[in-house]
């Protein structure tokens, strides 16, 4: 695959409000690179959600083009987008977003269900991932029986279960304490190193962003700065 995983070209987004159109993105262009661990850093209060939603194929831009894994997302209908999300993207949310009535193994296996994988393979793959994040013991528990950090690890297992090319982590540590945050970020960094998985981290915390190898700073709906992370620069200097 020679084409970059993510190609964003002059993306515009505006919301229709009672007071008229309200623009939130003003021509954002971004292309993922080989390093594959990218932090999108947004200042407090500056809506990062439009860009994250478009990147996750959950929302469509008002104008501009977004190619994911070679597919022009603007040309896909709802079901094709769902299939694309299922195949290419693994989501990690701030609020974990595990389904509360399902045990953890079923939660992890859920994307495979929509991918049409048979039950035995789903279970096997889910167990593999639970082992990878070190939570085999609690596979049969419901999400509310474990801590937030553990829930986020289960969410990461779910994100990885269908072997995506991209993990989209939206404030993954926003609900966690510092210590747990570091664990989660290390896990993500490790996954990036091990398997060359592209990770896009959306955050407003510089402390979290330093785990990434490239940092993209947003300001007022535009890209303000785009550079290699400090640690990387120091290493290459």
């Amino acid at each position: 695959m020679n084409a970059p995983l993510i190609e964003v070209e002059s993306l515009y987004k505006q919301y229709e409000t009672a007071a008229g159109p309200y623009p939130v993105l003003h021509g954002v262009s971004l292309t993922s690179d080989a390093c594959g661990f990218l932090a999108v850093i947004v200042p407090w209060g500056a809506g990062n959600s439009p860009f994250r939603s478009i990147l996750g194929c959950l929302d469509a831009p008002t104008a501009g083009r977004y190619r994911l894994d070679g597919e022009d997302t603007g040309r896909l209908d709802a079901d094709r987008l769902a299939a694309l999300r299922n195949r290419v993207i693994g989501f990690v949310f701030q609020g974990f977003n595990l389904l509360p009535r399902m045990n953890l193994r079923d939660n992890v296996a859920l994307p495979l269900l929509y991918a049409g994988v048979d039950a035995a393979s789903r279970r096997r793959r889910a167990d593999e991932l639970l082992e990878r994040v070190g939570l085999t013991r609690v596979a049969h528990h419901l999400p509310n029986a474990i801590s937030g950090g553990q829930q986020q690890r289960v969410a990461i297992a779910r994100a990885l279960v269908n072997r995506p090319r991209l993990v989209l982590a939206d404030e993954p540590t926003g609900n966690l304490d510092t210590h747990t945050s570091r664990e989660i970020m290390s896990l993500l960094a490790e996954l990036n190193r091990e398997s060359g998985l592209t990770i896009v981290l959306v955050t407003h915390e510089a402390d979290v962003a330093r785990f990434a190898r490239r940092q993209v700073h947003f300001l007022d709906g535009r890209i303000d700065a785009d550079h290699a992370a400090a640690s990387v620069r120091e290493a290459t200097a």
Partner: peptide, 16 residues
Amino acid sequence: TREIGIRMAIGARRRD
């Protein structure tokens, strides 16, 4: 609604 959103995000089609 939120559950539906999560399911859609991880790949549920409308038909599902």
